[in-house]
Design a protein around this nucleic acid. Structure first.
Lengths: 214, 214
DNA sequence: TGCAGGTCGTGCAAAAGTTCACAAGTTGTT
DNA sequence: AACAACTTGTGAACTTTTGCACGACCTGCA
């Protein structure tokens, strides 16, 4: 039905381009070639051109890409030109840090509600966000137009919480719990898991650590 | 010189196996087939068997894998059977949250030192970690045997800080700054970047948001 | 013992992803 | 106007990754 299916790897790279182009724009650069972009991002120019070609023709031969225009197009493609509302579930230490993280809002990702299972927490405020009871989740998601759920609960509860979110219409999950939850078709999940990152890193560090004697 | 080069995708999946096997062990499961493991991790059994085959033959035909044994082997391969010492650079809100994150220590990743550029912070304690001056970094890395650097500084300073770490012998970088720093050959970097995750997520959410009318 | 049901490890084929290489077009200079 | 220097977009070649399918083997039961 839709056009040529875009590989997920390509979609995952687009935000990298958005970020690099944003920087370039603030540097006053008006035009950029796939060559230049590639050397900044450590990628081949061909890959950048191929990636972009899934979505249209944004460049000009002999010249390159207009930074402002390409940026605007990529933001539109990724739907970054609209505000996204998220809720946080789990207001423990990690949850509090996430609410206070200053990196989301400038990118138009706004955490507009927080929930916690612990009734002691309910009614308190974290930053300027009111902590609500889990029972208020359905109505709050509905009334505030929340489409993303940020999960910062213990691993044991993550699957259940995510199912609850999905059942109430939340289609995007940003999961900080150290598990890989299963989600139904049509739901998008991204896992933030520093321990997994470290655990694959050590495979490579091992070698440089143990110096082999002659 | 070394055996058949192991693809990085494979290495990145190993920690997933480690985690699933750990859970299974606590559940009292003694033997597991690639089939079972695959259905838990949402992967094909063939992929699991192929991945493991890069490192040896751990299973028994007709039976499967001994959970305890496979887990032990994988932990050895990933070098998770030794303690890893890390330092944190940047003791802002994010850095404090990282120090207090309870997920590292149980996996034998220990943050044993913290540094900050801000002399006001130096000398204070975060949790039970003393904040040191950047000038103490070289000697501290050396004396405490630190091999991993966790970077939680503003984006503008990340590249510089990482170069400083690498120059002092730190070969593994866990970067929380929203940039993709360049690192020299032989250094392993992993980026934790929730904004990028969200920005690729919205591409898929966009569609389900805008319901196409008939 | 013989056989049915299961599972591993792996060569091979298919699929997915990356890079090459070139026609076509742009820009600036002489 | 002609040309040199660039750069895009893309089909084709190549590389990497995934999945299939089957021989070999294990286990338990009749």
């Amino acid at each position: 039905m839709r056009g040529p299916e875009v590989p997920e790897v390509v979609v995952v790279r687009l935000p990298l381009y958005v970020r690099a182009l944003t920087t370039m724009l603030t540097e006053g650069l008006e035009v950029v070639s796939s060559q230049q972009l590639g050397s900044r991002l450590l990628m081949t120019p061909a890959q950048i051109r191929k990636d972009l070609s899934y979505f249209g023709r944004f460049g000009k031969q002999g010249r390159g890409y207009n930074v402002r225009f390409l940026l605007q197009e990529l933001r539109r493609i990724l739907a970054l030109d609209i505000e996204w509302r998220a809720c946080l579930v789990g207001v423990g230490r990690l949850g509090r840090a996430i609410i206070n993280y200053p990196g989301f809002a400038p990118e138009a990702f706004n955490i507009v509600a927080a929930f916690d299972h612990d009734e002691e927490q309910v009614g308190t405020k974290v930053g300027d966000i009111l902590v609500r009871s889990m029972s208020e989740l359905p109505s709050t998601v509905e009334s505030l137009g929340i489409s993303i759920g940020i999960v910062a609960v213990p691993a044991t509860q993550a699957q259940r919480v995510i199912e609850h979110l999905v059942a109430n219409g939340v289609r995007g999950i940003l999961n900080y719990a150290p598990v890989a939850p299963k989600v139904p078709e049509g739901t998008v999940i991204r896992n933030i898991d520093p321990v997994l990152s470290l655990q694959s890193m050590t495979f490579y560090l091992r070698e440089s650590l143990q110096t082999t004697p002659a």
